[in-house]
Design a binder for these strands. Structure first.
Length: 276
DNA sequence: ACCCTCACCTGCACGC
DNA sequence: TGCGTGCAGGTGAGGG
């Protein structure tokens, strides 16, 4: 579900919910969830670990434990954490369970099973193949308009597809790529190297604004109708300007939002506002 | 090095 | 009701 803003919300929620907790025991229900280690070795190495802090890099959640251990988590499409009492039954979509030292457990559900977890050394985190490949953080100092323009100059791919490339900028996905292009009034079909400097600058600002707004207005942890289940709230699609708004009026000009396919994924845009 | 398609999974909404 | 199709916010492998 997650692009940078959603991952950020999960990170904040995890931080409030499980930081300083100790992991007493781990059960892996879906073995392919775990990369690089057997589920048994994974469980063994996590056992007894105390959660020190939770962070994020791109769309990766970084759960730092004591003793030089960090758990990397990628939610992919449908990964989701729940915080529940120990007696709660395990569901069929549950991929892993972390039993904590307070009679609660952190459950990782993932009905499509695309999600990934990997245990790494905290001291070598940046060298992992997952993180070392990532481009700059959109909120970081390395992500300048100059940097973006340089990246665009080097690619003939469509600008929309380029924005999904995590090695160029980390954290954008299908929603916010489209939203950023709308904010910047840039046609998603444009080749990256066809963008002018001023378009690149607009896009840079669009990316920042769209992600920033999503993080701020985004979502918060909620108790479900069943009060004993807590996870983070999914805000829904209504807050997007173009994403999944095919056939609806553009919020800026009233023209009909269009859907096209690029790289076998949907792109939504306003043909009038995003002519160039 | 790039670009494209497919594969990985499950479930839901749709039309017939 | 059932079945087929298309779609889903992500990525990595493998081909050209």
């Amino acid at each position: 579900m997650p692009e940078l803003p959603e991952v950020e919300v999960v990170v904040n929620w995890l931080s409030r919910t499980v930081r300083e907790r100790q992991i007493e025991r781990v059960e892996v229900k879906y073995p392919r969830l775990i990369r690089a280690l057997s589920p048994e070795a994974f469980s063994r190495r996590l056992k007894g670990g105390t959660i020190i802090k939770i962070g994020r890099r791109g769309k990766y959640i970084l759960i730092e434990l004591d003793k030089d251990r960090t758990l990397l988590v990628h939610l992919r499409m449908t990964g989701e954490f729940f915080y529940v009492g120990n007696d709660r039954e395990i569901r069929k979509q549950t991929a892993a369970v972390f039993y904590l030292d307070n009679k609660h457990k952190l459950v990782f559900d993932d009905h499509r099973h695309f999600g990934v977890m990997k245990l790494a050394q905290t001291s070598k985190l940046e060298n992992t193949e997952e993180l070392s490949a990532l481009g700059p953080e959109p909120f970081g100092k390395d992500f300048t308009d100059k940097y973006l323009y340089g990246v665009l100059q080097g690619s003939a791919r469509s600008i929309k597809e380029l924005l999904l490339d995590q090695t160029k900028v980390a954290g954008l996905g299908n929603i916010y790529a489209a939203e950023a292009l709308f904010a910047a009034k840039i046609n998603p079909k444009l080749r990256a190297n066809e963008l002018s400097k001023s378009q690149a600058n607009r896009l840079h600002k669009g990316i920042f604004d769209v992600l920033n707004r999503a993080v701020k207005t985004g979502k918060k942890a909620v108790k479900h109708a069943d009060e004993s289940i807590e996870n983070y709230f999914e805000g829904g699609y209504d807050r997007f300007a173009v994403y999944r708004r095919e056939g609806k009026p553009c919020l800026r000009c009233g023209s009909m939002i269009k859907r096209i396919v690029q790289g076998s994924r949907s792109t939504f845009y306003c043909p009038n506002c995003q002519k160039k």
